[in-house]
Nucleic acid binder design. Structure first.
Lengths: 223, 223
DNA sequence: GCAAAAGTGTTTTTATTACACCCATGC
DNA sequence: GCATGGGTGTAATAAAAACACTTTTGC
């Protein structure tokens, strides 16, 4: 029978794929690695779990301190535990998906100026350190199944958005083309959004109507 | 920046909710705890992860040695990392869902006779040690979303089954009643199953036709 | 007035729901 | 012959897919 006294001990790290949508483009936040190994490669934000905190608390604090995002929405993605994933050291990664809207990205807290970070389109992920590319892939795959939940969308679009913008998000994450008319019909019929009466002017072409999610909508599955 | 040299070390355990279907009833395999704390309570099978194995390898080996199941289908469920979940000790649990068909349960390998194990209907889970009840709940919740995948069903029903039996599985996991005619229609139209020509005789009432999943079906989402 | 992107409606097809009676077997 | 559980069909409704032209703006 299991005996906790005869245990091996492992290092646990958290890693998070934080997604946002900026002008209809789905982006992920990455940090640039400053030292070898993998110097100059990009990596996921994350830290090492202490003995008196949950993995969730750990990543939430880390993100607040190092990315400046308060109230980030997070959810577990997957555990990666290949013994050689960090070369000569055994580190188990508990990975997360985080969502943040683009307004909150602008309003972020002061953070130390020690890391070089950048938002990358999910269709142009740069070269990644360790197994982080695989972790990002899994996160995007998991995102697909989350996209059918109304709450996820509300988190990404807390304020006004256009339907073509929303459609582009679906197209990027599901990685396929959708019909504009059918997409509109479906979304409007769901009854989750309302017309703000405003338009998205100043761009080329006909301005799109601005919508917002209704205040009181309950979490539900959309598809 | 993250420094693996300044890490805290944690004990990692694996825990698995193994499900099977026996005569239309969805069951989970539990072990009885022999010592305090929680003596006489039930617990999930699982073990402590060493430094030279993945969590998956760990649980697969454990299940083979302690349950006698080879080639068990497994998938990650969730990580539980509340610092106090194992009373006075910090143990992080990486939890899994396992599926096995009832024939393979019969054919299991020889195992040491040291643990008392039992299959419980998921509608009658006994009192559980630690946070295992919560872990089982999460596993069942995750099962729901997996039930729409054709491969999951094929794993649970490798040989002949009846449609009423399959329907009962859906009803238990989704926790709602389904219409018999509509269920049949849907399943037969999906084109995944074929009539074996045999019947399930010897029970009360009209014998049900026996079906099997077609050999060549590809993994797909059903709903 | 032309390019760019958004908005709109109808028809067809497919899936879902609702619903009630007959059938095969064991005893 | 009766209790038990299984098998079957149809109509109504709802959702999804396919498809092309018009509108509004910036330049």
């Amino acid at each position: 029978m299991k005996d906790y006294n005869k245990a091996s001990y492992n290092i646990i790290e958290t890693l998070i794929s934080i997604f946002t949508v900026e002008k209809g483009v789905v982006k992920i936040l990455l940090f640039k690695k400053k030292n070898d190994p993998y110097k100059g490669y990009w990596m996921l934000p994350g830290s090492i779990v202490g003995t008196d905190e949950t993995a969730e608390e750990n990543i939430e604090n880390y993100v607040l301190e190092n990315c400046g995002f308060d109230n980030l929405f997070i959810e577990q993605s997957q555990v990666f535990s290949t013994p050689t994933r960090i070369i000569d050291r055994r580190v188990i990664a508990v990975t997360f998906i985080g969502l943040i809207d683009s307004i909150s990205v602008e309003l972020k807290q002061e953070i130390p100026d020690t890391v070089e970070s950048e938002w990358f389109s999910i269709s142009a992920i740069p070269k990644m350190a360790y197994d982080h590319e695989q972790i990002v892939k899994k996160a995007i795959e998991n995102l697909k199944t989350k996209l059918i939940n109304s709450n996820f969308l509300k988190i990404l679009f807390p304020s006004d958005f256009t339907l073509p913008e929303l459609q582009r998000v679906y197209e990027q994450i599901l990685d396929k083309k959708l019909d504009r008319r059918n997409f509109r019909k479906k979304f409007i019929n769901l009854g989750l959004i309302e017309d703000t009466g405003y338009k998205n002017e100043g761009y080329t072409g006909r301005p799109a109507k601005l919508y917002r999610f209704k205040e009181e909508i309950e979490e539900r599955e959309l598809f």
